[in-house]
């Protein structure tokens, strides 16, 4: 295995473009180093992107927050403006692993690891976050939900690196939230995760909403049919029941060591209901 620490994004993409298939980007390393423990894992090249200028910064512009790919999640929780604007995203990012993991893990890495249970991803998808991708052919920007294509698989082409996650500044009267279920209080992988982001109209009813589900399908998924149930409502009981039913119905989970199909489907509905209420309150809504 070769370890490289390029200082420009061009050098990084060039290294990856030239390497064999067993080349990996190293940001926080909290997934990659776990994989390296496996006796069957072999890497030819690891490209550490932390020495590339700007990678470790959160930049606030007039209309967005740009989160560098090497920003540890703990730093997001320390960024006051980001916390105020996107509390659900920050909470989700801060749920990943332990304090120790928080000091290293990144949202870009969480996304690229392409686990359907990734905590930050449903929140990012609900927030309509964009991934800024650098590659041999230049920069492109895609919606976060288009990055994972299956467990452990992404739509990134050879040589491409996510260099930043971009969150637009939220509109007035909007709010986001993320909830997950784990068996313990910490340290577990999400059994179900739900991100909700909604905006209210002048009447205080839901004008637009995005609902994203985690750990109940092969990838984190946006769930428009669930979102539809809330539009025009003030989250009355019937609306919340419809939301829960839609989320349960949209869930296509598996039985595994972390949970059962029935459990995941049922709890997806429960968490959606609870997350929607939090987002609604954050948006300034009242019932």
């Amino acid at each position: 295995m070769r370890y490289e620490r390029p200082e420009t994004i061009m050098d990084a993409t060039a290294l990856l473009a030239q390497a064999s298939d067993s080349a990996f980007v190293l940001a926080g390393g909290t997934d990659l180093l776990v994989k390296m423990q496996n006796d069957d894992f072999e890497a030819e090249l690891v490209v550490d992107i932390k020495s590339i200028a700007g990678m470790a910064d959160v930049v606030e512009t007039d209309d967005s927050f740009v989160i560098g790919a090497a920003v540890p999640c703990a730093a997001l929780g320390e960024h006051e403006a980001l916390c105020a604007a996107w509390p659900g995203v920050v909470e989700a990012a801060n749920l990943i692993g332990s304090t120790q993991i928080q000091g290293r893990c990144t949202v870009a890495g969480n996304l690229c690891n392409a686990s359907p249970a990734a905590d930050s991803v449903p929140a990012l998808v609900a927030a309509n976050a964009q991934a800024r991708i650098a590659g041999p052919d230049g920069i492109r920007t895609v919606a976060v939900e288009d990055i994972p294509t299956g467990p452990g698989k992404t739509s990134l082409a050879k040589g491409e690196i996510i260099e930043a996650i971009v969150l637009a500044k939220p509109t007035d009267r909007s709010g986001d939230a993320y909830l997950r279920f784990i068996p313990r209080t910490e340290m577990d992988i999400a059994v179900v995760g739900v991100g909700v982001c909604l905006a209210l109209n002048d009447d205080g009813a839901v004008a637009s909403v995005r609902v994203a589900l985690g750990a109940v399908g092969p990838t984190v998924m946006l769930c428009p049919e669930a979102a539809e149930t809330l539009v025009g409502t003030k989250l009355e009981d019937a609306a919340l029941e419809a939301l829960a039913a839609a989320c349960s119905a949209a869930s296509t989970p598996i039985d595994d060591k972390r949970g059962t199909v029935d459990f995941r489907k049922q709890v997806a509905g429960v968490l959606a209901r609870r997350a929607a209420l939090i987002a609604f309150e954050r948006a300034g809504g009242s019932q």
Partner: peptide
């Protein structure tokens, strides 16, 4: 590491540079 607690099993030796 640089003020943040980390698991040293999840840091490469090379990263300590």
């Amino acid at each position: 590491m640089d003020g943040r607690v980390v698991c040293s099993c999840l840091v490469l030796g090379a990263e300590a540079q």
